Simulated scan of single mutants.
Amino acid sequence: MIDKKCFANLNEYLYNGTELHLVLETADISLIKCIMTYYIIGDNLCIGMLSKALDYKIFYIALNRLLEIKMEKGSLIEN
Rank of each mutant, 00 (worst) to 15 (best):
M1Y: 08
I2G: 02
D3N: 06
D3K: 03
K4W: 04
K4Y: 07
K4V: 06
C6E: 09
F7N: 10
A8F: 09
N9E: 11
N9L: 06
N9D: 13
N11Q: 10
Y13M: 09
Y13G: 03
Y13A: 13
L14H: 05
Y15C: 09
Y15G: 08
E19G: 06
L20A: 03
H21N: 15
H21S: 14
L22Q: 15
L22G: 02
V23M: 11
L24G: 13
E25T: 10
T26M: 12
T26V: 12
I29W: 02
L31I: 10
K33E: 14
K33G: 08
C34G: 05
I35F: 07
I35E: 02
M36T: 12
T37E: 11
Y39M: 00
I41K: 13
I41H: 07
G42M: 06
G42L: 05
G42E: 08
D43R: 02
D43S: 05
L45K: 09
L45M: 10
C46N: 11
G48A: 09
G48P: 10
M49P: 02
M49S: 05
M49D: 08
S51W: 08
S51C: 07
A53F: 09
A53Y: 12
D55L: 09
Y56I: 03
K57I: 01
I58D: 04
Y60E: 10
Y60V: 08
Y60G: 00
A62C: 06
A62H: 08
N64I: 01
R65D: 04
L66R: 00
L66F: 04
E68M: 09
E68H: 12
E68N: 13
E68P: 00
E68G: 02
I69P: 10
I69N: 11
K70P: 01
K70C: 15
M71L: 03
M71V: 02
G74E: 09
S75M: 03
E78M: 12
N79V: 11
N79T: 09
N79A: 10
